[in-house]
Design a protein around this nucleic acid. Structure first.
Ligand SMILES: [Mn+2]
Ligand SMILES: [Mn+2]
Ligand SMILES: [Zn+2]
Ligand SMILES: [Zn+2]
Lengths: 136, 136
DNA sequence: ATGCCTAAAGATAATCATTATCTTTTGAGA
DNA sequence: TCTCAAAAGATAATGATTATCTTTAGGCAT
């Protein structure tokens, strides 16, 4: 469990309170917060944070592999601290997005495409977009 | 092969030259054009078309099940005239998006999730987002 | 065919998430 | 501590999309 500070240093990025707060907010909020969610969360300990800074920091963290972007139905970007390969469950009634990891499924899909090639296309990654309803 | 006119009438929508041109442009352009692509295409026979009208018509056609939206990497909506269940191949180098139909795969996935349920989630649809490189 | 009425098109402004620009501050090495 | 590029803050700009308002025109009744 490597710390944010170390991750930033590894990439040659300066360790700033804002970067730590923003990264930690995405981790803590969990489940793909929007920029607005993140700003609200940080405002508690950082009432003066600039929204432009949040956007900038998020882009830096994405470019350096600390976070990833998740696109949602609506035209609003969301962020994900889960960097391992995984799929997403999308609620078709709300904005809820949950992570879904399934190595058995990944094996199944990988085996399938090893046997059945798509002509004219070299597959790099297959992600499932699973839509439906949460019952909990 | 039911015509656009008939599809519009079925839905109680007025048949207008703009609606036909826009729908046909999406069909003809093929592979998920942007609004800009569509406007450019229509401008040839319809030099005076209003961009606002194109947005409005596209939304109407999506709401009435004649077209669907496809979200791309960039913050630009794209449109699809292919209404049957299918997956997408995304190029990780360009904006290219191709359709991918595979009933064998669909059966495999459906069978898998019939056996292995996701707890707390009722699946409605599973779409694969396949990223990689086109070799043609 | 003509007129009527509402839905749709056109024109234009507004919205809003995101990016860009500029100034001020600050992390980190010397 | 000093220095300086990098990062934060403040603010304006961008650009896709939507909203509002006026004008036009499909489609039905006469
Ligand atoms: Mn946008
Ligand atoms: Mn947008
Ligand atoms: Zn995720
Ligand atoms: Zn498609």
């Amino acid at each position: 469990m490597i710390s944010v500070q170390e991750k930033l240093k590894e990439k040659g990025l300066k360790v700033t309170p804002q970067r730590m707060a923003i990264y930690n907010a995405v981790v803590k909020l969990n489940n793909h917060p929007t920029v607005e969610n993140i700003v609200d969360s940080i405002k508690i300990e950082y009432p003066s944070v600039s929204v432009g800074t949040v956007y900038k920091v998020l882009n830096v963290l994405v470019e350096n592999g600390l976070l990833r972007k998740v696109k949602s139905e609506k035209d609003i970007m969301r962020y994900d601290a889960m960097m391992e390969h995984h799929h997403h469950l999308y609620c078709n009634a709300t904005d809820r997005i949950e992570d879904y990891e399934d190595m058995q499924l990944d094996t199944l899909v990988k085996d399938y495409f090893n046997r059945k090639k798509i002509k004219g296309f070299k597959i790099q990654e297959v992600k499932l977009q699973i839509t439906g309803n949460f019952t909990t």
